[in-house]
Design a protein around this nucleic acid. Structure first.
Length: 206
DNA sequence: TTCGTGATAGAG
DNA sequence: TCTATCACGAAG
């Protein structure tokens, strides 16, 4: 009986990774493992937000977000409370284009029992299959805001041990600029928050 | 489908 | 001060 292992190589992702552009970072983060203290999981869903020309990015409407970009280095986490309930985990990309990657879903790999207690669910698919779920499972809150994930081995990203097939489709949950195909998911993965639309993959001319 | 929840920003 | 908005999730 074969079991799919989703372990990472152990090689930590450095700041250079985030000194490029948000699309490229979001796409390549799929398959990487997020380590957060005693817990972690493989990223199976991520979205890109561009600081310039993207109405859905907080930079478009929030002066405080633009200030965050100015004062922080690539790899800093940007955390905010959504709908008064859910913390959102983003990573600052500061390079050829500035912006953020929103981490939207994980396939749990470590600290699963602890995450189940925090989430008060037993089904592993319910642990981290959404941006608000994963922050609850990993106990990510505003206290982590502005922490840099490229300098601390306890809170970092690790490169994948194997390549993953990535699907690009429209971003979800936003009311503006949703047409950009800037959501990246791991193909057929059961831990993705919402399955990509049929035919929603990257097509030429989009 | 509806609704809770609080940070943020902008108007008055 | 007041109000609109919001990258969500759970319940029904």
């Amino acid at each position: 009986m074969s079991v799919t292992r989703l372990a990472s190589t152990g090689e930590m992702i450095g700041a250079d990774f985030f000194r490029r552009d948000p699309l490229c970072c979001a796409r390549e983060l799929v398959g990487c493992e997020l380590i957060w203290g005693r817990c972690g999981g493989v990223i199976v869903e991520a979205e890109a937000y561009n600081a310039i020309g993207d109405e859905a990015c907080h930079c478009f409407v929030r002066p405080s977000t633009r200030a965050f970009v100015e004062r922080n280095q690539a790899g800093a986490v940007y955390i905010y409370l959504n709908y008064g309930v859910h913390w959102m985990l983003n990573v600052l990309v500061k390079g050829t284009e500035n912006g953020f990657v929103l981490i939207r879903a994980l396939q749990p790999t470590r600290g699963i029992a602890l995450m189940k207690r925090r989430r008060r669910v037993d089904d592993e698919r319910q642990l981290c299959s959404g941006p608000g779920k994963l922050t609850q499972a990993l106990d990510i809150t505003i206290r982590h805001h502005e922490m840099n994930v490229c300098v601390n081995k306890r809170f970092c990203f690790r490169k994948p041990s194997h390549s993953v097939e990535v699907v690009a489709d429209r971003r979800i949950g936003i009311r503006v600029s949703a047409h950009f195909p800037w959501r990246f998911t791991s193909r057929d993965n059961q831990h993705v928050s919402v399955r990509p639309q049929m035919g929603g993959e990257l097509r030429s001319g989009e």
